[in-house]
Simulated scan of single mutants.
Amino acid sequence: MVFAPDTEVALRSVVGLINSAANGREGLAAQADLDAFLEAEGFTGSRTRDAAELDSVRALRRELTLLWTADEDTAVEIVNRLLREAKALPQLVKHDGWDWHLHASVPEAPLADRMSTEAAMALADVIRGKEMDRLRTCEAEDCDAVVLDLTRNRSKRYCDTGNCANRAHVAAYRARQAAAG
């Protein structure tokens, strides 16, 4: 384990959110898409289920996409701004089968504020741990999805949104076969 379990969960949620717009698709086109995303990621708390909420989550996605590929100083600026704007107040909580972990917003806060706070807290751990190199983009030429590398040897190169790794491995195999034959 590289990070605390709640940090890894939050980072994976950030990846899912960013990749919901990868490769020219809009994975949060409607309220039902946001509902499905939040259910899959285990987000709880109050919801307005209106267009403004959906728009605010899409705006957060743009911010997190910029943060993902930012240098450390820029990432720190974005993380601090997200925490400041959400009026984050870190607290230890225990709920829904989770042992003690950090929350920095109340369940009644707007959804985008809760999401940005969780993302910012997780990314603060990444920055403090000098692990920014674990935040990558997919190495497939035709993919712009992001990758979270939690492997020990820092070897993850391809995203989980499609079959980028499989396509790259097949292409490399065929190239080797062509060179040998």
Rank of each mutant, 00 (worst) to 15 (best):
H103I: 04
A109E: 10
R58E: 13
V57M: 12
N19A: 09
L11F: 04
H95M: 13
N80A: 03
L17D: 07
A59G: 08
L83H: 07
E26R: 11
E41K: 09
L67M: 03
A29T: 13
Q91Y: 10
K87G: 08
L82M: 02
L64P: 00
K130R: 11
E85N: 05
W98T: 02
T44K: 01
V14G: 00
P90F: 11
P110Y: 10
D113C: 06
V76Q: 05
R61V: 06
L28F: 03
A119F: 04
A75M: 10
A120F: 11
W100T: 00
A32C: 15
R62T: 14
R58D: 15
D71F: 01
R84F: 08
A36K: 15
S116V: 10
R62G: 09
L54Q: 06
E53C: 13
D96T: 10
E118K: 01
D50G: 04
L38I: 05
L67P: 04
P107G: 02
V15Q: 03
R114V: 12
P107I: 05
T44I: 10
V106Q: 10
P90E: 06
V79K: 00
D50F: 04
L17F: 12
E118L: 12
R47G: 03
E63H: 12
A124G: 07
D96Y: 11
A51F: 09
N80M: 06
G24S: 05
P110L: 15
A122K: 02
D55N: 14
D113N: 15
Q91M: 06
E63I: 15
A124Q: 14
D55T: 13
D55M: 15
S116N: 11
R25C: 07
T69S: 12
D113P: 02
R47W: 13
L38F: 12
V79L: 15
S116C: 06
L60C: 05
L83V: 10
D50Y: 01
V57Q: 09
W100Q: 08
A75N: 00
M132A: 01
L135E: 00
S56N: 11
E77Q: 13
G42V: 08
A59D: 13
A124R: 01
D99V: 03
R84E: 10
N80D: 02
A22P: 02
S116P: 08
L38M: 07
E53G: 00
A30Q: 11
E131K: 01
S13E: 10
A119P: 06
L64K: 02
V14L: 05
T48S: 00
F37H: 08
W98L: 07
A52V: 15
I127S: 00
A109T: 03
E131V: 01
S105C: 05
L64H: 01
E41I: 09
L60N: 08
H101F: 11
L135M: 06
L67H: 00
D99E: 14
L64T: 01
P90A: 07
D96H: 13
P107L: 09
A10Q: 04
I127L: 06
A32Q: 15
M115R: 06
L135F: 01
T44V: 14
L11S: 01
L82I: 08
L11I: 05
R136A: 02
E39N: 14
L64G: 00
G27M: 14
L64A: 03
G24N: 12
V93M: 05
V14A: 05
A104K: 02
A70L: 12
L135D: 03
E39L: 15
W68K: 00
M115V: 10
S56A: 15
